[in-house]
């Protein structure tokens, strides 16, 4: 999951670096690939957001009058989603660490009693 979040964040940051006018078309295809990866990682909302971004970027390339507000809405929603996922991921990592530590302590205590 963390790998997927990193990939999404990196792609969004690339788009910020290059700009929609230059990097928009390439980013569309990359977001579509990321949508599949997200689905495989269990990030369903992430997949929906990536698909939405891919669709909007693809459509942007074929319109004469660029209306970017919905695209930016989707882009910043995706950024917010990544931040929330990271927060949750961090929490899970701490809990996982605590569980491992508890198991290790239990094993040691059992070993001592034997």
């Amino acid at each position: 999951m963390n790998h997927c979040l990193n990939a999404m964040e990196a792609r969004l940051t690339d788009l910020l670096q290059t700009g929609l006018d230059t990097g928009g078309t390439d980013a569309g295809a990359a977001f579509a690939r990321l949508a599949e990866e997200c689905e495989a990682c269990g990030l369903h909302t992430g997949s929906v957001l990536m698909n939405r971004l891919a669709g909007l970027l693809e459509a942007r390339a074929h319109v004469l009058e660029k209306e970017d507000a919905p695209l930016l809405d989707a882009l910043f929603t995706a950024e917010h989603y990544i931040a929330l996922c990271r927060e949750r991921w961090q929490e899970l990592e701490i809990l996982e660490g605590w569980q491992e530590q508890q198991m290790w302590t239990q094993d040691r205590e059992e070993g001592d009693s034997l």
Binding site: T18, A69, L72
Partner: peptide, 15 residues
């Protein structure tokens, strides 16, 4: 504010 951000996003950080 949103127009300014749209402009920046279109242009890209490098430019």
């Amino acid at each position: 504010v949103q127009t300014a951000l749209t402009d920046w996003m279109r242009t890209g950080l490098t430019r």
